[in-house]
């Protein structure tokens, strides 16, 4: 089992994970920057406080399940997994390279500890529904939790709403879905490309309990997950408002960083910002 970290330690962990994301992407020379940085606080909260699992025994039958439905954000998951002890942090630098277990988009059969293969959008929630229905048949429904991280642009996919309807019908209350509401997708702002609002009302209309949170506030993520577990007759959607590129000022809110990595110069600048918390402190390694 992994040790649950205190709030201070979690904030430091999220920052370390962001630094690793920048290094990984720079080394890989391709990949997505904004999403993984924006999700770092949510993924840190889940891996280092909320979820029960054992990195030394990834198939532990009582573990909670983490599904990254928006597979392009997997660098943040890889970084969290390395910090949690699933594999050595050095391996992070193999991201997207020939022979690596860290494929550009997550492949379950390549890396122990991944629960799904994803990248093509809109499938994670359906897989979660299948898992939750199996857990109900096995009478472990209130003992294991399924966390599904989804993009907001991903919700253009019809498959998402098919799953939303099914989870509502069967009241799959051990699913805790988290929408990374960062308002960007590849072609531009979500509300221009394909408006999602009123997103909260949509999920509620499908039979979900919806909680809106600040997805870059670790404490609010943890609190919302506790609240979600108390809801016994509905699946729960956390609409997590996040800042895309969070922690690196020149990437924040800029949709052009959705699908590209930093070059050496940009990475250096980004790492400096992360180490000094945007110039507020002096970096340890500066």
């Amino acid at each position: 089992m992994v040790t649950k970290l205190s709030l201070d330690a979690l904030e430091k962990k999220a920052n370390d994970i962001r630094e690793d994301i920048i290094r990984m992407l720079e080394e890989a020379g391709s990949g997505h920057s904004a999403g993984p940085l924006g999700l770092a606080d949510i993924v840190t909260a889940l891996y280092f406080n909320v979820m029960d699992y054992d990195p030394k025994n990834p198939d532990w039958p009582e573990r909670d399940i983490f599904l990254m439905s928006n597979g392009h954000c997997v660098p943040v998951q890889y970084a969290a997994m390395a910090h949690a002890g699933f594999f050595d942090r050095k391996e992070l630098m193999t991201l997207r390279k020939y022979g690596s277990r860290l494929q550009g988009h997550p492949e379950r059969t390549k890396l122990s500890g991944l629960e799904n293969t994803s990248g093509p959008l809109g499938c994670g929630l359906s897989q979660a529904c299948g898992m939750a229905l199996a857990m109900r048949m096995d009478h472990v429904e209130r003992k294991r939790w399924i966390y599904v991280v989804m993009g907001d642009g991903e919700q253009d996919e019809g498959n998402v709403w098919e799953a939303a309807m099914l989870a509502g019908k069967y009241k799959l209350s051990n699913i805790i879905a988290i929408t990374d509401r960062n308002n960007i997708q590849i072609d531009g702002p979500t509300e221009e490309i394909m408006p999602l609002e009123d997103l909260k009302a949509k999920w509620e209309a499908f039979g979900w309990h919806v909680i809106e949170i600040d997805g870059n506030n670790i404490e609010s993520v943890i609190d919302a997950c506790s609240m979600a577990k108390a809801i016994e007759n509905k699946p729960v959607m956390l609409i997590a408002h996040t800042v895309p590129g969070k922690g690196v000022e020149f990437m924040e809110y800029d949709f052009t960083w959705h699908g590209k990595p930093p070059n050496r110069e940009e990475a250096k600048k980004a790492l400096h910002e992360l180490r000094t918390l945007g110039g507020k402190i002096r970096g340890e390694h500066e």
């Binding site: 359906s126 897989q127 299948g130 939750a132 229905l133 199996a134 098919e162």
Partner: peptide, 23 residues
């Protein structure tokens, strides 16, 4: 038995999740 409704994309993907749990 699970009734999915008229939603074939969901049907096969729910299948993937069921299989993941050993079904």
């Amino acid at each position: 038995f699970i009734e999915i409704g008229v939603a074939e994309q969901n049907l096969v993907t729910v299948g993937s999740g069921l299989a993941a749990m050993g079904k």
